[in-house]
Design a protein around this nucleic acid. Structure first.
Lengths: 343, 343
DNA sequence: TCTTGAAAGTTAAACGCTTTACGAAAAAAA
DNA sequence: TTTTTTTCGTAAAGCGTTTAACTTTCAAGA
């Protein structure tokens, strides 16, 4: 026999399929005797109820789509893991879609998830095509944005306080005596707030804001390295580099070490994310930790409350990043600051 | 209106639902005029065919289950990404299940995948409960094992040649002049063959096999560190450590560096996997690369050919690992070899 | 002119569940 | 005993597709 169906169970147990269904879903009103009988037969037949059939009637697939740039990147992998765990706890499975920042893939995957009738979709920063999100909303599929915000759309959102992240990292470097603090920003949305935090921190510590110290790049080791090289080649190079994610920070480290400079004696480096990479590199990386596990929990919670309609108002959840001090930062080496800072 | 169905499309296009279905799936025999009309209406209504409904009739979900220890671990994340890409190319989505080596989770997830009627399941090493695999087979769901073999079961398999991996890494160290080469094995199946390779290489290079140099542990940084410490505390410590995955290798590095020893001057270290970690740590890690992308491709290919019944015989695919030389290995420092080797 | 066959569609059943409305039997109340 | 509840179940419709079998139309061949 092929996979047994509810009919096989019903027949063998001598009851109707409604009864079997009722027992499976524990919809009260069946005698213990019947329940046991049914359960026994299910066991005996190795019957696994088909969730595709039940999804069809229940109009719920208990599945969530996750759209991220790349599951193989440690930060996203850790986030996905958190979602998997929290989702599982609530009875949801996750389908992961890696877009590589590519609009074609975005489109393909959105369409896929819609056809699969996922109950909700979690989209992280790095997603480009806003119109696709509108398509999702039009189909009345709940969406939660993570580390990502779209002003024109009213959506549930979970993010880290990027402004504070930018501010804290910068302030920390300033307190270590660094006067020329460079940043390597990422070409994603969260960068803007981090830059604002950076600028305000500079201001509060009476440091000048020098546009030459601001670079932007895609999140790869190579790009981080290239950008750091540019910074080091400046007439007045920075003594500290704040990279907007750990990958870029590690790329920057490479550039610094390649020149024979020491970290943190000559150059301090701060990353962002606190992915596993930060603990592996040498020296270990001081970085702004994103509370990934909490983000996962909130994202799932937010999404499910929208799916189940328990909360009507959209919510913006803002979590606090935290500075994790490791060995890539230290007091500024003042000798190398050729010129003094105005103000 | 809620999500439009095939009826809505049919009605608006003035055709039967069978026609709409036919056009969607490109089942010949419809005039261009009709096709266009239907396509237009689909577009206009933003109609996304429900794959849950079609799965019910077609008895295919176009979904593959992946069971691994932990998606947040770089090696598995990279592998999952490869599967995602190859699967997508063939029209399959992946549901990832992280078991944490925990039999309860294994059971839960197997049951989940069976209920979801996935078309096939890919199971990696680190899976413990063989009986569960039998349950899967009994349901006639194709299974492919990756880096994992179960003698009692005749299954499709994709692995790396662990024997050669163990041999090559050891031989490389031996050629660098190391006499006392320790190994930190992992508590998974693939270890056995790697150990055999290690032993044979020792033999071929006329080195003694010392049981004290063989340790075993779970794959965490901490465990790697602990095991390496033990090795370094030996009366005759090794001059080279070959760890059976990059995580363990990096843990070992920590222990070595913590003692003030230098890598590779005092101790050489070789890992296994060639995950992203190997390029991040400092010094960068010499490691046996597993051809993850090929493994993903072969696993998907093997699984799909079984799903579609194109290939009847089970196949064992064996891929070759490759030594990637980086900066964690160097010539043996002979001074530190107190005692000479017999033979 | 009549027959055949291909082309273009349609009808209706099936897929494996959930759920609503309803019925019979048993228990409780009168 | 009769009536009313409660308990335990069942029948049947519906979810949105696919598909096998069938019908209609029309051009071509005999």
């Amino acid at each position: 026999m092929q996979q047994p169906t509810i009919y096989d169970v019903a027949k063998k147990a001598g009851v109707s399929i409604a009864t079997v269904s009722g027992v499976i879903n524990n919809n009260g009103k069946y005698s213990n005797k019947t329940k046991e009988k049914v359960l026994d037969v299910m066991e005996e037949l190795k019957y696994y109820p088909s969730s595709v059939a039940s999804s069809l009637t229940a109009k719920r697939t208990q599945t969530i789509g996750l759209i991220i740039p790349d599951i193989s990147s440690p930060f996203y992998a850790e986030f996905a893991r958190s979602l998997e765990d929290w989702g599982d706890e609530k009875g949801y499975s996750i389908i992961i879609c890696s877009t590589d920042y590519n609009e074609k893939k975005e489109k393909k995957y959105v369409s896929l998830l819609l056809r699969r009738r996922v109950d909700g979709i979690i989209i992280s920063s790095g997603f480009n095509n806003v119109d696709l999100i509108k398509d999702i909303i039009q189909q009345e599929i709940p969406v939660v944005l993570v580390a990502y915000n779209i002003d024109s759309l009213q959506l549930n959102t979970v993010s880290v306080d990027d402004y504070r992240g930018g501010y804290q990292a910068t302030a920390y470097l300033a307190e270590l005596g660094h006067k020329r603090i460079a940043i390597i920003t990422e070409t994603v949305q969260s960068s803007a707030e981090r830059i604002r935090g950076y600028q305000n921190a500079l201001n509060d510590y009476h440091l000048i804001y020098d546009e030459n110290l601001l670079t932007e790049s895609r999140a790869t080791f190579e790009e981080g390295e290239i950008q750091a090289e540019k910074l080091l080649n400046l007439e007045e190079p920075p003594t500290a580099i704040f990279a907007f994610n750990d990958i870029l920070a590690i790329g920057a480290m490479r550039a610094v070490l390649k020149r024979g400079l020491k970290i943190p004696e000559d150059i301090s480096i701060v990353g962002f994310d606190n992915s596993v990479l930060a603990t592996i590199c040498n020296p270990t990386l001081t970085t702004m930790a994103q509370p990934l596990n909490d983000m996962g929990k909130e994202a799932i919670g937010s999404l499910i409350s929208e799916i189940e309609g328990t909360v009507k108002r959209k919510q913006r959840i803002l979590l606090l990043p935290e500075l994790v001090k490791r060995h890539s930062t230290g007091p500024a080496n003042l000798k190398s600051n050729k010129r003094e800072v105005k103000n």
